[in-house]
Write a protein that binds this DNA or RNA. Structure first.
Lengths: 214, 214
DNA sequence: TAGATTGTTAATCGATTAACAATC
DNA sequence: TAGATTGTTAATCGATTAACAATC
């Protein structure tokens, strides 16, 4: 459909456009110009038009953009027009928090199973989703359609488990472990890292700079 | 100490340097050149040297960088050489997961209290940290030293609570709600957004592109 | 000293912003 | 038609990479 080679910076911004358009939709706003949207989002109108034109001409001169249409189109670009089965490997607090989080399911990311190493978690359910033992993982992957694996294990275990995942056909990992899995896994495996501790450190950096001002 | 005006791109990379240096330290590596580090981290040696030189000359010609020293210096830059008291507002699954997560505490981010609106959570403890009711928040902020507030409430509640936080002196918010608090709060309030759903959408985007290839 | 590697300046590349012709 | 606003090209800005003199 649309070209590869879209810059990472543009892709990072797409979900934010999608969110703002969703809010406009809730507010029953029918159309919006790049100028108005730029004011709300605090980005330049130029950037909005450039970004969108990477994927196609979604607007109309003299009118602007139809909110419902643009929301829908960006949704398609992001792959939100269909369901994605997800499993969560690591049924600790964070894994369970993700399983409990309804908003992912509402965007089409459906958690179908959890996995853990701890025998005491076997058979437990979270939001009616069962916790399996990690040695059942290969079998499960071969008998179920799983697109995304959320990996919420400590680093030490995550690296080894990631290899097992990839060996059994997994092509997309949502990685919460403090390690850069993308560097150790084959290039055709998509890794999206969520490094919470790094986020907290950036906050701490800014806090420290601010305190120095005084 | 060091200059303001360090680019956002550089700051984003600092925690990653810190992590790699920590691992080298664990492996008892004493010194490392920008060339060796660049190979491990898959960035250019030039970038490493440029990044570090924003903060000072930490290396030595002909030798490279002393791992322990550099790790320590970056830690100081990130404000990791001291403790930061944190409270978590929103004691749902995610808030509790953060409270349970020991690695933050180990980096000096100490969770001292949780807050929630739900009366049934009052007095509950997570990792020996007590859950308070949200109406006690102003009083608590005035009588305790709190540097960071992790905000793990749904968007609808988060916006209003953020105003209360700021009105009571909070200057740094680690925001997990799906909204850009930085746009509604005063500029002197530091907001670090963690938008998990946006991260998942980027994963979905890449997955969708990959499937189109076939 | 010779070799290695930094710190730093200069060159390149990419991303953002501005400008404006096309067009609804 | 006139006005508004896009799509797109050109100009600017900033970030990354390359090169090399300084120096340990």
């Amino acid at each position: 459909m649309e070209d590869k080679g879209i810059s990472r910076a543009v892709i990072k911004r797409l979900p934010r456009y999608y969110r703002y358009l969703g809010e406009l939709l809730e507010d029953h706003v029918e159309r919006i110009s790049s100028g108005e949207l730029s004011e709300r989002m605090k980005v330049t109108a130029s950037q909005i038009r450039q970004d969108l034109n990477n994927f196609g001409g979604f607007g109309q001169q003299g009118y602007g953009y139809n909110v419902a249409y643009l929301h829908d189109e960006i949704g398609k670009i992001l792959g939100l027009n269909r369901n994605h089965n997800m499993i969560i490997v690591g049924a600790g607090h964070l894994g369970q928090a993700l399983a409990n989080y309804g908003s992912f399911a509402r965007s089409g990311f459906k958690t179908v199973a959890l996995f853990d190493v701890k025998p005491e978690l076997a058979g437990k359910t979270v939001q009616n989703i069962e916790v399996h033992m990690i040695d059942e993982l290969p079998e499960y992957l071969h008998t179920h359609h799983v697109e995304i694996v959320a990996l919420t294990l400590p680093k030490s275990e995550a690296v080894a488990v990631a290899d097992v995942l990839v060996a059994n056909g997994v092509r997309a990992i949502w990685n919460f472990a403090h390690t850069d899995l993308n560097l150790t896994l084959p290039h055709n495996v998509i890794v999206e890292n969520v490094h919470l501790s790094e986020s907290l450190m950036r906050l701490s950096y800014n806090l420290t700079r601010q305190e120095e001002q005084k």
